[in-house]
Design a protein around this nucleic acid. Structure first.
Lengths: 379, 379
DNA sequence: TTGAAAGCGCTAACAT
DNA sequence: ATGTTAGCGCTTTCAA
């Protein structure tokens, strides 16, 4: 009924008249093997429906070909695309992914990391919950296996990091607004304690100041609910002049803000424009569709795996590296009237073609001794 | 620097003055052990920072405490919530999750399943890509390990299945429309070859007929793009009378349809109402927010894991079982004018309180010898 | 209750 | 180029 269920190397060896080592060598290609022996082995393996037991292989070779992927909250709509790319890239290299969700809790995160290490993952990919409160667990884990941080940092010198260049992304947004003559922007973001929140907020402050805009921030969390609440606050109270641009820290906030603005009857993009960050799937389903900063998700995945495998080859070869990838501004109807007439998917202007770097001298911490690469793939 | 990296059972044995077997028994609790020996062992283990090597354990005990989760496309916004619940439920029981994404391709799916089996997963959770083209691989896998299908079937008698009761869900929608006096509904769905698509479509047909509505279907795929296209087709051509209700096969379609209706200036819910299915996160970010059928995601996860563990305990105990969980209608502004005034998250009416079963005698195939349970958790 | 010993299925030395 | 032999770290007989 199910051939191959418990066929072992020894069975193949017997059936092919070779020794187990020869069979092992043929099947794992670790050493040169005689042509006809190889053929006989392959035949026998095929015939018996042999499939190597990866657990046994792992125990002996001290490598599970498995990496742990630790996410703060998989329900954050930015992560599914990242997971997709990572699993594909890793799968191509024969590696499997053990997934862990942390419910946005550093304690849970520490526990999950522990569990993954006990399962002997070869390496870890971590999007840390919090810049500070994740540090201990992440640092400890990084001492045991190669570990690459994704999307968010965890303090300098802890581990390799691959993330979008938040500073450059914010600069793209501000340039876009400036070109459209917006002079009273307000930032709706998160005061969250993860690094992406901090970077975007800081980049906005610096960039807006450079443009001569009044420094105005509304800080809550990265949710649509906060987007709605922030609009209520900005429009219903005596909180200064009405903004003519809402620069949102991520797309969820932008979506929530847009929803409330429409309910209040505020014309977008006429009276105020709205921008997001990340380019999550629903961003172009809103009405108007949201102008946003697209993260180079595929590149992030490729880059992260590259760093990981370098560490696997030689764990001590480099000091901690930070790779910043250039984002792309996706202009949609929330900042550009009349545009994007029908086929809602319409992204308009690709931008930021070249290396990143941004307009503003933003807070890129002196993360590591090594360079802070940029541009599409930092080779 | 990193205690516990290579502390083994033998080290603990030496340090505690016991034999490895005693240590093993203490730590895995497999057999009664003397009180003070136990204490000494625990102390030593603690002190050395010992953590059991799960790979070695797995090799010996023939159980990896790992399940494979195979998804058609993790970027489908319905799955992240499911993944979240599953990982949490499994984690509570000490099991880890190996995740695989199939890119909606049955060939890839077969390969991923093979890879997971080679890694000796104890069991598989699969959302099959296609009702027919996934069958061979799924059936083969089900012959090797316990396998539970989620969300979509794969033909009768192949494996256990846990899914929402699509028929009941569609009945909730149709009742809701009928109560609002809508008489010219149109179904915008998918002619896709997965079972959820087929069930929803069939349930609509049967239910709409029962209400005396003209049978009208527009079939494409489960995407927002198709929602837009379908609306174009229904409004721009001479394709019969203008519908006063769009019953969409999932939320993405509904979101796309809504977007286009707004662009065409069609008032929702005044001139036509729109409903979705699944209740994915962006459904309540649209404007108007989408009335939809919420899947009991948590229950699906709990139920699936329950079935899995039963099979693990005794693989041949039962024939294939199908568990159908009752959905809930979430009424929002796309069918209910004036409602849901400000705080967009506002879900309105919980419904479908009791057992499921629906209005229409829909195509619930004679799946298995065993019963087709229903209601919230089929105990 | 505890210990000694035999493997789980494979790979990696070490021989030849 | 191939075979023989030890284990990887753990659980589990089997004795005591």
């Amino acid at each position: 009924m199910n051939p191959g269920s418990d066929v072992t190397l020894r069975d193949v060896a017997r059936a092919s008249g070779c020794s187990v080592s020869t069979v092992s060598r043929v099947l794992s290609g670790s050493r040169p093997v005689g042509a006809d022996a190889a053929r006989r082995v392959r035949e026998a393996a095929e015939r018996l429906g042999y499939r190597p037991n990866q657990v046994a292989r792992a125990l002996r070779s001290r490598s599970t070909a498995t990496v742990g992927l630790v996410l703060p909250q998989i329900t954050n709509p930015f992560y599914p695309a990242l997971v997709r790319e990572l699993t594909h890239v890793l799968d191509e290299r024969g590696r499997a992914v053990l997934l862990a969700d942390c419910d946005d809790d550093p304690g849970t995160e520490a526990a999950r990391i522990e569990a993954l290490l006990a399962r002997q993952v070869d390496a870890l990919l971590v999007v840390p919950v919090d810049e500070e409160r994740s540090r201990t667990a992440v640092a400890a884990a990084a001492g045991r296996v190669p570990l690459v941080l994704l999307d968010r940092s965890c303090g300098p010198g802890i581990a390799d990091l691959v993330a979008v260049d938040n500073t450059a992304g914010m600069a793209l947004v501000l340039d876009h607004l400036a070109a459209r003559g917006r002079t009273r922007p307000c930032y709706i973001g998160a005061d969250g304690t993860n690094s992406a929140a901090a970077e975007r907020r800081a980049a906005y402050e610096v960039g807006a100041a450079a443009l001569g805009a009044p420094p105005r921030l509304a800080l809550g969390d990265f949710s649509a609910a906060w987007g709605r609440a922030a609009v209520d606050r900005l429009w219903n109270r005596e909180s200064g002049p009405e903004p003519d641009a809402l620069v949102c820290g991520n797309d969820l906030i932008a979506l929530g803000a847009l929803q409330r603005l429409r309910q209040l009857g505020v014309d977008v993009p006429g009276r105020t424009v709205v921008t997001g960050f990340d380019d999550i799937p629903p961003a172009d389903l809103a009405d108007p569709a949201v102008t946003t900063v697209r993260q180079p998700v595929r590149d992030i995945a490729v880059e992260a795996v590259r760093l990981l495998e370098q560490r696997l080859d030689d764990p001590a070869a480099f000091p901690c590296r930070t790779v910043r990838l250039a984002p792309q501004l996706v202009i949609r109807a929330s900042t550009e009237p009349g545009d994007h007439p029908a086929h809602g998917t319409g992204d308009t202007a690709p931008s930021a073609p070249g290396p990143t770097g941004g307009t503003a001298p933003a807070p890129r911490s002196p993360d590591s001794p090594s360079a802070s690469h940029s541009s599409k793939a930092a080779q």
